[in-house]
């Protein structure tokens, strides 16, 4: 069995996902995630070394597109979907730091 998931780990995950959780929610989610991880661990127990992990359900490789330009969207249409726009650009709240 894997290590039990701690409340701190759930709080860390919540921060990475930009979710605000109360202490009570952290406890609830820790319990629920524990169940999920436990179930996955049970599956892992029966997996033999000769079975590769699955990331794609269809056995396809090399799906490539030709490097040919297709029309882009109309800018007014694009920006109409934005909460706010200025000078042809999406307006967003101030950023607190450079990109990670």
């Amino acid at each position: 069995m894997p290590e039990p998931i701690t409340r701190d780990e759930v709080a860390h995950l919540a921060r990475l996902a930009r979710l605000e959780c109360t202490d009570a929610e952290l406890d609830t989610f820790a319990g629920q995630l524990e169940v999920i991880l436990g179930s996955v661990a049970r599956v892992a127990e029966v997996v033999a070394d000769d079975i590769p992990p699955t990331s794609h359900s269809v056995p396809l490789t090399n799906v490539f597109r030709e490097d040919v330009v297709r029309p882009s969207l109309d800018r007014d249409e694009v920006l109409a979907a934005a909460p706010a726009a200025e000078d042809g650009r999406f307006e967003v709240p101030r950023m607190l730091d450079e990109a990670p």
Binding site: E86, G88, R89, F90, E91, V92, P93, R94, M95
Partner: peptide
């Protein structure tokens, strides 16, 4: 800055 503008 007060806000930022993004070009995609």
């Amino acid at each position: 800055a007060t806000h930022s503008l993004v070009d995609y």
